[in-house]
Design a protein around this nucleic acid. Structure first.
Length: 264
DNA sequence: TTGATTGTTACCGG
DNA sequence: TCCGGTAACAATCA
């Protein structure tokens, strides 16, 4: 389900709802039982996000690391919590509400050292305040990989997924197979600014919206899911009606307009 | 029942 | 070392 905007939204919500509280942490279906006991009843200090990774800081050296992968899902509920649905990996209960977590790719307790090491592996997160656009520019300059491949590479930019990749490249008229080191500085700056803008819109509205902006960049309201996107899962270009081509790039399905997005 | 999926990682070969 | 391709894993739904 998630790209970076979802994860940052969750971090923001969980920080607001649970930070400072002594959460009850359980693992109804096991697979996190020992870890749950370690942190249950301890005060949760802070919830942070980097790319698609979530971190629950109980203390300096005791950090919950969650990655949702393709299927991971949080279900937020008011107290008292309902019966667990499906294989609930971990359940946290705060003062007024709590959540169940199903199907995460990763759900573990890590030390500060492991947390730092993991974050070193990750690239720049456009949604974080400590982000460095120059680092991303340098990595792109050094890579002959297709730009459509690099955008999904979490060690370059952390947080972009398959939907944003297709939408960003379409909006800029860049062919996904363009080698990253052939991007001009101007193109890169455009790409970066658009990425930051779209991800921020995503966090604010809790959904991916890349279509229907007016001249002032105002976010449209009341659009159906299919109308919020330009090209992802479409068959015709909304701009020129040309057929949209699809192929596999970096192991995921790429969508691009056969006319608007050309090489050179 | 089948196939697809808003993801990541390891491994292999060029 | 870089890079692309492939498979494995996770859970849900149309």
């Amino acid at each position: 389900m998630p790209e970076g905007h979802t994860i940052h939204r969750i971090a923001r919500d969980h920080q607001k709802w649970f930070a400072g509280q002594n959460l009850i942490v359980t693992s109804p279906q096991g697979r996190f039982s020992d870890e749950a006991a370690v942190v249950s009843g301890k005060k949760l200090r802070e919830v942070t996000a980097h790319g698609k990774h979530l971190f629950y800081h109980w203390n300096k050296n005791l950090i919950g690391h969650i990655h949702l992968g393709l299927y991971g899902k949080f279900r937020v509920h008011k107290n008292p919590p309902p019966e667990p649905r499906g294989a609930v990996r971990v359940r946290m209960i705060g003062l007024t509400k709590g959540f169940d977590l199903n199907g995460p790719n990763c759900c573990e307790l890590v030390t500060k050292a492991a947390h730092d090491k993991l974050r070193l592996r990750l690239g720049e997160d456009p949604l974080r305040e400590d982000v460095s656009r120059e680092t991303v520019w340098q990595k792109m300059q050094r890579s002959r990989s297709a730009i459509g491949s690099l955008l999904l590479n979490q060690s370059v930019i952390a947080g972009i997924g398959n939907v944003y990749r297709a939408e960003i490249l379409f909006l800029l008229g860049i062919h996904p197979q363009l080698p990253a080191n052939e991007l001009t500085r101007g193109q890169f700056d455009q790409l970066w600014d658009l990425t930051v803008q779209l991800l921020q819109v995503g966090v604010k509205h809790n959904r991916i919206i890349t279509a229907g902006f007016d001249g002032a960049g105002k976010v449209p309201k009341g659009l159906r899911a299919a109308e919020r996107l330009n090209i992802y899962k479409r068959s015709e270009c909304p701009r020129c009606n040309a057929p949209i081509k699809t192929w596999s790039l970096a192991n995921r399905k790429m969508y691009a307009c056969s006319v608007c997005q050309t090489l050179d």
